[in-house]
């Protein structure tokens, strides 16, 4: 099966592990990620104001590109996914906005592309049984804390990934890989996000809450799908590794080799 793939800027630079292992693991699981040609940065955050059009055009172009190939659009970066999914939702539901966008772009886009986060692709297009089957280095009961943050789950009316207050999608994957998920209450609380650029101390407090909560739960590693979350958490977690979920997946599926990310 082939899907359209939107990697995003960070995955080409600071978060190469997220990208490289996403592709490798997908191949093992029978899915080819076809990178969209000439994609542009999603902008990192979705501006909720209805009159903001220009900042959403790159997402619409990516969605249109996937539509032309009759493929679903997958991204693995939480931020890209959030922006693209919210843009798609606005194209479907806000006709005034959609009309304005379509006046800018050369092709009319109708909101019909299906948008998947890599996690949803694993759950809905691959299936936990298939993942289990492909595991070669099971995690042997390692206690892993899934960190969702905000972008994957909220706003739930649009994201519709999982129960926003008690999600299970990453935990199910951890279980499929032979690990034991740690359920801790800060897994869907904010890490401090982009405010790290404006008020690093505030952002630090938020990340600290998450890391402490995960450690209290007995986790030996924290996994995330968001480069900014990883950056923020890393600073607070000298004694607990924060890794991308694709790295963990690659480890268990036996496709992680040292030096991959360089």
């Amino acid at each position: 099966m082939k899907v359209s793939y939107f990697p995003g800027c960070t995955l080409k630079n600071k978060a190469k592990q997220l990208d490289i292992y996403a592709r490798k693991c997908a191949e093992v699981l029978g899915i080819t990620l076809e990178e969209i040609e000439a994609w542009q940065c999603c902008g990192g955050v979705f501006t909720t104001s209805r009159d903001e059009v220009a900042t959403k055009l790159s997402s619409v172009r990516a969605l249109q590109a996937a539509k032309e190939k009759e493929q679903v659009l997958v991204s693995v970066c939480s931020a890209c996914h959030n922006v693209i999914k919210q843009t798609n939702h606005a194209m479907q539901n806000d006709t005034e906005f959609a009309d304005r966008v379509n006046r800018y772009n050369d092709v009319e886009y109708d909101g019909s592309t299906k948008v998947y986060h890599y996690l949803e692709m694993l759950r809905d297009l691959v299936g936990m049984d298939k993942i289990k089957e492909k595991v070669v280095n099971p995690l042997n009961g390692e206690k892993i804390a899934a960190y969702y943050g905000c972008l994957l789950l909220r706003p739930n009316s649009v994201m519709q990934m999982d129960d926003p207050e008690n999600p299970t999608i990453i935990e199910d994957i951890i279980k499929a890989l032979g690990g034991v998920p740690v359920i801790y209450p800060y897994r869907n609380e904010c890490c401090g996000g982009y405010v790290t650029m404006d008020d690093p101390e505030f952002s630090r407090k938020k990340s600290e809450n998450v890391v402490v909560s995960a450690k209290n739960g007995g986790a030996s590693r924290i996994i995330t799908a968001c480069p900014l979350c990883k950056y923020n958490l890393d600073k607070q977690a000298p004694d607990i590794p924060v890794v991308y979920l694709t790295e963990l997946l690659a480890e268990a599926l036996g496709v992680k080799e040292d030096g991959d990310e360089r």
Binding site: T10, V45, T196
Partner: peptide
């Protein structure tokens, strides 16, 4: 990460 920069600019 680049994401932090573009998000902050937005």
């Amino acid at each position: 990460p680049q994401q932090a920069l573009v998000s902050a600019l937005r």
